[in-house]
Design a protein around this nucleic acid. Structure first.
Lengths: 345, 345
DNA sequence: CTGAAAGCGCTTACAG
DNA sequence: CTGAAAGCGCTTACAG
């Protein structure tokens, strides 16, 4: 089944290929209304669909955008991607979505591939490491529109949209202080990136401003994985019980640490927030997998607040930044830290 | 910054463009090792990257696949998409992902667009309605590789991979029977599709086989939305309390109904599973948003089972089916219902 | 065997 | 103004 081309229509209508192209693309051309209508009619009847690949080759535009994230199925990426995809689709752009598995060499592979496919722009949530900074700089210097999301590189001049992680951490500490703690404990992942480092920095600053204890001894970084996280919290609770529970507040870096926290709390029958003052990033969403998880539920007795990122705003802003770059604007200020909120209702 | 083309390399190496193409593509050509090496060397030095768009135009292959789902951010779609994307990427295919918002006309729009971009295959989780069946049939008849996931159309001959929803519902009822209920109540969404209809059918069959009560009066279909769901359960609990709680078991269609169920249970202080025998599809994942959600947690006193779909298997099978079709195999039996499991560890 | 040339299906600069 | 022709960058059938 052969596809219909402009040439086919031109022959059937007895006009030039140029005329067909211009009529169908609504470009200025002086032609009798009769012929114009005839061309359109034939195109319609033959169910003509322009060959987008040929258009791309000729125009050097593919109307496609690459979205590169560590894991399309975790954290807020699904929601973020949906948000961006919907916005860009309505403007005629299609999104090619890639999963780097937080691996810098996959990241390079994917991005190179997207460039080879002539995406017109890239939205990237980069791997934590700085390993690919030069690689990204090369791309950005080539003039390819590029917006980082979720993570950024301070000192580099990429456009980015991230949460204001430092601000969020500071609100969190303020909350703990209002709970009369005199010391804050930071629990995070060993694997660092700028986003979580900003959270750590925020806690540090806020602790100093509020004159509560926060030294390197209060920082605990662990491997990801529920088991490892539990061990970390087990150790923390042991050391806390010596000094008294109620005078310490726990800040956890993301909800990837929550189930491990609950596992350790259950071992000591610590209720939240009664026995334990905690606060952390990301909405509370519990995966109930094991029988003991039902016991964990009982630990969460009353509401406690969490720090929530504004996914929608991040998505919208990233889309707007990319569109501005696509329009060729050389705006300087395409860097945005989106404010976060403390919610507990 | 001009891109390097085969012609550029040919000129620099003093050979024909054909020679360059064949050498770089490792196609059979008789050429002196020196020239072969020279071509490769120049390509490397100039950082030659083939123009994929031109290749596509010429070869009529784009190495891209369209994935179309109602909502990339909900249910198990994120995980499913990641699974499929990873598999297809390793074979050189890129995935263009689209979000139909469960709207049949968006669905047509997206699919038509993907075809215009010459995707080589499609993986589609279709909207519930049968509205687009003819549209999909036209595409399938054109010979475009096409695999449905999550939902299918009985009587139509599309390849598909779905969970064995009927089997899952039957296991669920058997569990309720083991809890000594004499009657099963089905709670689902008003908006139907084949997947959930199969669950309803499974419940019906199992109820008959186990000689417990299940008539149309035991079926409750509600609008989605936590508030509406709560009202439905409120009504159910009222009618149940008249007849006694413990003799009825509740089957809920998907975890989109869970929070509403808990809301209504809280109003009557019904504990689970002590006061209420329930079972439903999908893993238990609670969104803790409102203060009263903490009270809801207390209702979940002990483990109760849920029916879990095998996302990984669905993803793998869908990928394999599509790859088989891409290879041009005219296999008949590309239809698979993936078994589900009851889990409560 | 080899490489010049045709052709994929468009858009648009430019000759008439 | 108009439309034939060039050209985007490849691959491959085919003339030599």
């Amino acid at each position: 089944m052969k596809n219909i081309s402009l040439k086919d229509i031109a022959e059937k209508a007895g006009v030039s290929q140029t005329a067909v192209s211009k009529v169908l693309n609504e470009l200025p051309i002086r032609i009798t209304p009769a012929k114009r209508e005839k061309i359109k009619e034939i195109a319609r009847r033959l169910n003509y669909r322009p060959n987008v690949v040929a258009q791309s080759l000729r125009s050097r535009k593919t109307k496609s955008i690459g979205i590169v994230v560590p894991d399309i199925s975790s954290l807020f990426y699904p929601e973020l991607i949906r948000n961006i995809e919907t916005r860009l689709f309505s403007l005629g752009y299609r999104c090619i979505i890639c999963n780097t598995q937080d691996n810098p060499s996959y990241e390079r592979l994917y991005i190179q591939d997207l460039i080879d496919r002539w995406v017109e722009g890239l939205i990237i949530a980069p791997c934590g490491e700085e390993e690919n900074v030069n690689f990204l700089q090369d791309i950005y210097k080539m003039g390819l529109p590029l917006v980082l999301i979720d993570r950024y590189f301070p000192g580099e001049n990429f456009p980015y949209v991230v949460s204001d992680n430092k601000q969020g951490a500071k609100i969190a500490v303020k909350f703990l202080v209002s709970q009369k703690v005199s010391r804050v404990i930071y629990v995070g992942e060993k694997r660092r990136n700028q986003a979580v480092d900003d959270r750590l920095r925020g806690v540090k600053e806020a602790a100093r401003e509020n004159r509560i204890v926060f030294t390197d001894k209060e920082i605990f970084l662990c491997e990801i994985g529920r088991e490892k996280v539990r061990e970390t919290f087990r150790f923390i609770f042991e050391s806390m019980s010596r000094k008294g529970l109620s005078c310490s507040g726990i800040f956890f870096e993301s909800n990837r640490l929550l189930m491990g926290l609950l596992d350790a709390a259950r071992e000591r029958n610590l209720f939240i927030p009664d026995d334990l003052r905690i606060i952390g990033f990301d909405p509370l969403s519990l995966e109930i997998v094991y029988p003991q998880d039902f016991a964990s539920l009982r630990l969460l007795k009353n509401p406690f607040p969490i720090i929530k990122q504004d996914v929608q705003k991040i998505g919208n802003t990233a889309s707007e930044f990319l569109l501005a770059l696509l329009k060729g604007k050389k705006e300087k200020n395409l860097r945005k830290k989106v404010r976060v909120k403390m919610v507990w209702r």
